[in-house]
């Protein structure tokens, strides 16, 4: 998302940031165009160069104490200059009592002003978390996301190839569905790809021939989860004799979403093939690799060792004249 309306921000964070609106709701229609936060101490003191006015402005103890220390005239002047800028909204921390001009002048400029009991540091943490999440780059993909043994597997492939059926089969075997058919991917600040479903679709799923089913209701809470890190993409493809499929696991293929690279496995399917077991194997194999064990490389090593021993033995026996 590239901006959030102040009203939506208020609705979302009201309870966990414990913010309350200290002036009229006029300012709720403004947009927050930036995910950063700013403490405008210097701007209030009159230094307006490089004033990052387009961020949420947090007034902590220092700013409020400073405003209070000014004469009525100077305070008004300082705030007048401050409100010349198109400020998204203001949050006052520590439930500091505001000078009476502050909410009134914010109102005149159409800026919402909130108050919270949290300290500035606590508020900054909570606020950054929320804003990072909201402003994270996102993308909708046509896929199903299932948590298989704790690994987030993203199933892609042409419509009708059987993504939902595989997801259902996995749920039957005790794995957890995140979302079917529509997955929203977001990239977090530390470059992790997170997938989640939509508010509306929840864990509903379409199974061809049956119709719409509710996995959450059918299999209970153990069968679902709200979001999951996406660790591997499993692309389901129709079996083709001409296509070369991975036989050894030595070459690892990757795919990129929102600038995050994840492993990519192409899985040819045909009727009667037990995809679910293969998919579980993919997940377990990934676990082994995470723990530092690479089966294909390990086997390769064993093979070279055995070849070496044999050559040594052969050359020994060759020269074993009696």
């Amino acid at each position: 998302m590239d901006k959030i309306q102040v009203g939506i921000f208020f609705q979302d964070t009201q309870s966990h940031l414990k913010i309350r609106l200290a002036n009229s709701p006029k300012g709720l229609v403004r947009d927050i165009p930036n995910k950063d936060i700013h403490r405008p101490g210097l701007a209030l003191a009159g230094f307006l160069e490089l004033f990052t006015y387009d961020r949420i402005q947090v007034l902590g103890n220092t700013e409020i104490r400073y405003l209070r220390s000014l004469s009525d005239f100077a305070r008004k002047e300082s705030l007048q200059k401050f409100f010349q800028f198109e400020i998204p909204c203001i949050i006052v921390s520590n439930s500091n009592e505001m000078p009476p001009e502050l909410p009134a002048m914010a109102d005149e400029s159409g800026v919402a002003i909130f108050s919270t009991p949290f300290s500035t540091t606590e508020l900054t943490h909570l606020l950054s978390d929320y804003l990072d999440h909201k402003f994270a780059p996102s993308q909708i993909v046509h896929a199903s996301l299932v948590d298989v043994y704790g690994t987030g597997l993203l199933f892609t492939g042409r419509s009708g190839i059987g993504k939902s059926e595989i997801a259902l089969d996995l749920v039957e075997r005790g794995h957890r569905l995140v979302s079917d058919d529509v997955v929203t991917l977001t990239r977090t600040a530390d470059n992790v790809l997170i997938g989640h479903g939509s508010e509306l679709l929840k864990h509903f799923m379409e199974i061809r021939g049956v119709g719409i089913i509710d996995v959450g209701r059918m299999f209970g809470v153990r069968a679902i989860r709200q979001q999951k890190r996406v660790e591997t993409e499993v692309e389901l493809v129709d079996w083709s004799d001409e296509q070369d499929y991975e036989r050894t696991g030595l070459d690892e293929h990757t795919k990129e979403y929102l600038g995050v690279t994840i492993p990519h496995v192409q899985l040819p399917i045909f009727p009667g093939k037990n995809i679910t077991v293969i998919v579980e194997t993919i997940a377990l194999n990934l676990h082994l690799k995470v723990y530092g064990y690479h089966p294909a490389k390990e086997f390769g090593r064993a093979l070279s060792d055995s070849m070496k021993t044999r050559t040594q033995l052969e050359s020994y026996l060759e020269k074993d004249f009696e």
């Binding site: 909708i140 046509h142 419509s159 058919d181 529509v182 939509s198 379409e206």
Partner: peptide, 29 residues
Amino acid sequence: ASQYAASVFLSKDGIRINAKSIMGVMMLA
């Protein structure tokens, strides 16, 4: 949409989905 080889995407309010998926189409509400 599913009867044709061509790909179809539907978008509304910045949300773009594959129109061969019924869940996707309904998600647009």
